[in-house]
């Protein structure tokens, strides 16, 4: 426990890397996932097909394999060699999480009754305008609970990066337990609490969004 007591910054820094990974790949996944969802429900057959293939390939691939592809296979092929490790971590997590974001958002879109889109088209809105002005605002409301789950899973998935050069919380925890074998439990509990705090903040955010966007039907 000496290490933690003497240097609380070590734990905070470790979680700072975890948070950077989670926030950056969370934002990137939301953007990419929304695009993918738009492709899948959109009228362009090629894009819809691409979205479907992307989701089925990525969703069927373990996250660890994606990390191996980005961190070990790609540099062997001279790709991403000089890319900072944090960026590579964000790339790997985004590839994976965006497939789940896409499906959560698609579920939301499907929950908006077809009449809404038809009415929008009937008053002359384009596909883009129909999506951004009519369908997506309603869809996001329905996607808050599943999206929160996806992003919470993402926050915990960042721990996979421990084995790929990123000194995030899990990596630091392993270093501390290795050096302080006699304080294993305290170290475990300290880091568990850190993850719990992150996840609780995300759940609280999701709940308040749900309240704010609640519709009176």
């Amino acid at each position: 426990m000496d290490d933690i007591a003497n240097d609380p910054g070590l734990v905070l820094n470790a979680f700072w890397v975890t948070i950077q990974l989670a926030v950056l790949s969370g934002l990137a996944s939301l953007v990419l996932g929304t695009l993918l969802a738009a492709m899948r429900v959109g009228p362009v057959a090629v894009l819809a097909r691409f979205g479907t293939v992307y989701v089925s390939i990525v969703r069927n691939t373990p996250l660890l394999v994606i990390f191996v592809l980005v961190f070990i296979a790609a540099p062997t092929l001279d790709l991403l060699v000089k890319t900072p490790f944090l960026v590579k971590g964000v790339i790997a997590l985004t590839i994976y999480t965006s497939a789940f974001v896409c499906e959560a958002i698609r579920a939301g879109i499907n929950s908006v009754s077809l009449g809404q889109a038809e009415a929008a088209r009937a008053i002359g809105l384009t596909f883009g305008a129909t999506m951004t002005q009519v369908v997506l605002p309603q869809a996001f409301r329905a996607t808050v609970p599943p999206l929160a789950s996806v992003l919470i899973a993402l926050a915990k998935n960042t721990s996979v990066a421990a084995a790929f050069g990123l000194a995030e919380a899990t990596a630091r925890m392993r270093g501390l337990t290795n050096n302080n074998a006699d304080d294993r439990w305290l170290i475990f509990i300290t880091f568990a609490i850190g993850y719990i705090i992150i996840v609780e903040i995300m759940s609280a955010g999701a709940i308040s969004l749900e309240r704010r966007w609640r519709v009176t039907r």
Partner: peptide, 9 residues
């Protein structure tokens, strides 16, 4: 940047 096994001394 120096590589070793995660968590090692």
């Amino acid at each position: 940047e120096v590589c070793s096994v995660t968590g090692s001394t």
